[in-house]
Design a protein around this nucleic acid. Structure first.
Lengths: 159, 159
DNA sequence: TATGAAAGCGTTATTCA
DNA sequence: TGAATAACGCTTTCATA
């Protein structure tokens, strides 16, 4: 992936509704060229989709927590993500290195809802849980800097 | 906030580029009514923005980690989020309850880049760090169910 | 890959209910 | 608040290079 594609990805990560016209202006390409590149980025899965960023407080889910889970029976097959995917309060599930096997990010309406969710998690996946409650979120959803050389383009110039 | 707004928010959270025409069809409102509601949701901050969802592997940032930080000097004023905000590899910063004070979510290109970032975090905010490396991410960015009663409509049925 | 042109469709402001 | 209209701008496709 090269410079212009990185630029497009960064712009769309910052404003997912930016128009092709604006993207064209920002990148110096024609509208149809950007259009083509965006569709290619989508098809290749570089851009996986678009989402509105929601204020969870405003929407009745003011309590965020990280729940680390560990299997009760370490010999059992580990299909925790599948067993938990029906719990819609779970926003994300990451497999992690370390003492515990997964970190879940959850959003709920209240402490009681969290208590209930934890019971469902333990029952659904046969795991123990360790929960870290989020008090506030200074920032989230920041867009990283997509630097110059991820894949150092082996220079096979031979002329 | 009521039913139709929740519907709109959910639809936009799932597809941030959905057109007003489609939103109108899905909600049974006219285009101009949805338009008005979306603008109001944006102005009120319920919808805080729009973002493309990026495949970080494809973009040269395949390593994700959670970094928990704790101040070296607990008496010093806690302005870690401000001191760290220049580090663009930090995608999110959550203040948390528990032994540590913040959890950072970071995205980097390689283990060496992570090592470097951790040193910058420690130096910038005068903290110790504990890092949990993400091995894989079964799912992320799921849209929660915005249930009927954020404000549980006190059931005063008495008959 | 990039461009420009043309058709169709979506967005937005305005007006009225 | 919601609907209808109309002007305008954006998206998408196509032919071309």
């Amino acid at each position: 992936m090269e410079e212009i594609d990185r630029r497009i990805v960064t712009l769309l990560a910052q404003d997912g509704r930016m128009s092709f016209t604006d993207l064209a202006r920002e990148t110096g390409l024609s509208v149809s060229a950007v259009h083509q590149r965006v569709r290619r980025l989508e098809k290749r899965g570089v851009v996986r989709g678009y989402a509105a960023i929601i204020d969870h407080d405003a929407v009745g889910l003011p309590l965020t927590a990280f729940v680390s889970i560990k299997p009760i029976d370490p010999a059992a097959p580990d299909d925790a993500p599948d067993r938990l995917s029906h719990l819609r309060a779970i926003e994300a599930c990451h497999s992690v290195a370390g003492d515990e096997s997964y970190i879940l990010k959850v959003r709920v309406a209240s402490p009681v809802a969290l208590e209930d969710l934890l019971q469902q998690i333990r029952a659904s996946a046969n795991v123990s849980t360790r929960t870290t409650v989020v008090l506030s979120t200074p920032y989230e959803h920041r867009v990283p800097h997509l630097a110059g050389e991820p894949d150092p383009a082996p220079d096979i110039t031979q002329d």
